[in-house]
């Protein structure tokens, strides 16, 4: 079952696996599975998942039915409201609005982040000089900049894109930089020994080596960009999923909030899965760690 990976301290990029950490995935050979029972084990697993899913459904339904509709609504009510939103088109238009912002912002972040990462990897002076500032920006909660953007640019498409970009840029740059910086000099040696020209070193060595790192950054950017999108829509928007939530909250329309939250969750899960797929596809040649 695919899952996001945990982080361990000392790793410069929170959210990305730290090499050499107490081995998520590469334990001592003695790591044992607990009492593996062949067919029963499988059924047991399926049962466990089913119980979990069913339990959630039941709890949601029961809690919802026994609370006032301002506090919580049942799963069935949520789903029927979702149906309403779909049939009157408001969900689709919200999705479109949200995703155009998201796509543009994340795409820009990937392009600029990759370029920035390569630049910083190549120019040691730049890196040395600006590193502390970049670390500060990476750690900064970008939400805090939203009011400034609102004051400067008001509502609209581009302020939101900028917010998404702010959230998504740094993981891309950071990871790309880390990759490009870590190219083993031995491999450059090999390329040079075959009289490879500078341009071809980029093509055959630097870029292929860096690509998996870039994809890790992309995976993180997809997640962070989503947070940025929602936050931007809370404050800078009259359209999109985030603004649906805000408006519904002002009406105490819990059913709508839950419905939209469900959609957002599904979107988030899908994006994470895509992110991981992309990352794995490009990390194919990496030694299994």
């Amino acid at each position: 079952m695919t899952q996001p990976r945990p982080s361990t301290p000392g790793s410069p990029a929170p959210g990305s696996p730290a090499p050499g950490s107490p081995a998520p995935g590469s334990p001592a050979p003695a790591a044992r599975r607990r009492r593996l029972r062949a067919p029963t084990g499988r059924w047991r697993a399926v049962l466990a998942y089913a119980v979990g899913l069913a339990g959630g459904v039941v709890v949601w339904q029961v809690l919802g039915s026994h609370s006032s509709s301002e506090v919580f609504v049942s799963l069935s009510a949520t789903l029927s409201r979702l149906g309403q939103l779909i049939s009157d088109g408001s969900l689709q238009s919200a999705l479109t609005a949200s995703f155009s912002v998201y796509a543009v912002g994340v795409a820009l972040a990937i392009v600029t982040g990759a370029a920035g990462g390569l630049l910083f990897a190549r120019r040691a002076l730049l890196r040395l000089a600006l590193e502390p500032y970049l670390i500060a920006l990476y750690a900064a909660p970008m939400v805090a900049l939203i009011p400034f953007l609102l004051a400067l640019m008001g509502f609209g498409f581009w302020p939101k894109v900028i917010v998404v970009w702010l959230f998504a840029y740094f993981p891309v740059q950071f990871n790309t930089q880390r990759g490009a910086q870590s190219i083993a000099p031995e491999l450059i040696d090999v390329a040079r020994s075959f009289r490879t020209r500078e341009r071809d070193i980029w093509l055959h060595v630097a870029i292929p080596y860096t690509l998996p790192y870039l994809m890790t950054g992309v995976r993180q950017a997809l997640a962070r960009g989503l947070v940025g999108m929602i936050a931007a829509e809370f404050f800078l928007s009259a359209t999109g999923l985030g603004s649906l939530l805000i408006i519904a909250s002002e009406r105490f329309d819990t059913a709508e909030m839950l419905a939209v939250t469900l959609v957002i969750t599904l979107v988030g899960v899908a994006l994470m899965a895509i992110g991981r797929l992309i990352e794995a596809r490009f990390a194919r040649w990496r030694v299994q760690q």
């Binding site: 899952q3 998942y49 119980v51 989503l226 999923l241």
Partner: peptide
């Protein structure tokens, strides 16, 4: 673990700030 995986992964994948209005 198996029972709760679905929820943990889903919540981890979603932008939690989306819950603030709620």
């Amino acid at each position: 673990d198996r029972a709760l995986r679905l929820y943990v992964n889903s919540f981890y994948a979603m932008p939690i700030v989306a819950l603030v209005p709620l």
